[in-house]
Design a protein around this nucleic acid. Structure first.
Lengths: 187, 187
DNA sequence: ATGATTATTTATCATTTGTAAAAAGAACCC
DNA sequence: GGGTTCTTTTTACAAATGATAAATAATCAT
């Protein structure tokens, strides 16, 4: 719970009352490797802080999987489209390792945002940083070919390489595993 | 100015005081076709509401241009990475038609967000919707090939087709103009 | 209208990536 | 150890896209 609290407090300093209310809404959960934190077709009701482990957010169409993002420990994450609209999503959240999270429900966060200005500020800043990351992703996909995207991944998130399968990395880069294997062999 | 005010009020109902303060910060500007609202290397200091006209947000590397998004009238927009971090950006905002906007400076909006909870809520929701759009874009780029992305554009933003060049559309889709021409001829 | 410029299409060839199938390697279980 | 499964690499071929150049078409300024 401490990690979540600290993360929000770092985004925007929280009053004692806001911290207390926020703490009251937090729940801890654990998942095995391979478990779904969120299934396709469901509504994403939680904002998560990843205490330990690793997850991917992804979606599947006609037996192909595409990965939006990996989230290692000490990250706030959720499926922002469904979390925002509270409509069913086709995205999934899947644990790639044994994972423990601290989470808060969307409805509760919404109440806290109304009640405590500092909490809303923190959430607003979280969203702002999310957009920065997404813009980077879009830019890379526009500008770079698969080889460049692979090298870029090594540079930015190379530490994750040891923890994810090359199949998942290919699904993140938007290419086939065969193509990724080709790229890796050519250096 | 009315459009900006209404847009924010629709995102979160504003108190009279918040509306008044917001109005006090708004400025109107006009641009010719081809003008830059934001230059590469500059800091994006404004959040814009597009009263009339059309703009693109884009970036250029080694004489190739890539387009992040088109914004037609009645849209709130900015370059969110620089607006968030107040650091120089490599993105640009360029008017594709004679354009009039209403804008507010980041520093002023930040003050208003602190002062008026409803303004911060509106801005937070604006960011949330921006992330939804960006997720769609990323998903499409992962899942769809150029032909599918073109058809998708026709479906979602087909009305813009009359107002933008095919070169710009190609730069948005992440393919060459030659490739787009090929796709169009093959139906 | 005329000529100049810009935008779009067409053609050709090289490169990249996808598809499918098979082989090699690694991890796991009994 | 041997067998099983999953992951990764390799191969061969097809399809998509990029690069370049040339040909049309459209637009604009005078």
């Amino acid at each position: 719970m401490e990690g979540f609290l600290q993360a929000f407090n770092r985004l925007s300093p929280h009053t004692d009352a806001a911290r207390h209310d926020l703490l009251g809404c937090l729940r801890s959960r654990s998942f095995e490797k391979g478990d779904c934190l969120l299934r396709s077709g469901a509504i994403c009701r939680n904002l998560y802080f990843l205490d330990s482990g690793l997850v991917k957010t992804c979606f599947t169409t006609s037996d192909k999987e595409f990965i939006m993002r990996f989230f290692p420990e000490n990250n706030l994450f959720t499926v922002l489209d469904s979390f925002t609209t509270q409509a069913p999503t086709f995205y999934e959240i899947v644990a790639l390792e044994p994972t423990t999270v601290t989470c808060i429900e969307q409805a509760e966060l919404e109440v806290l945002c109304r009640k405590h200005h500092c909490t809303e500020t923190a959430f607003r800043k979280l969203l702002a940083f999310a957009t920065v990351n997404m813009m980077k992703r879009i830019s890379e996909m526009l500008e770079e070919n698969a080889t460049e995207r692979y090298k870029h991944f090594l540079k930015d998130q190379g530490a994750l390489l040891q923890r994810i399968s090359l199949g998942d990395l290919a699904n993140y880069l938007g290419i086939t595993q065969v193509s990724l294997s080709r790229i890796r062999s050519k250096k």
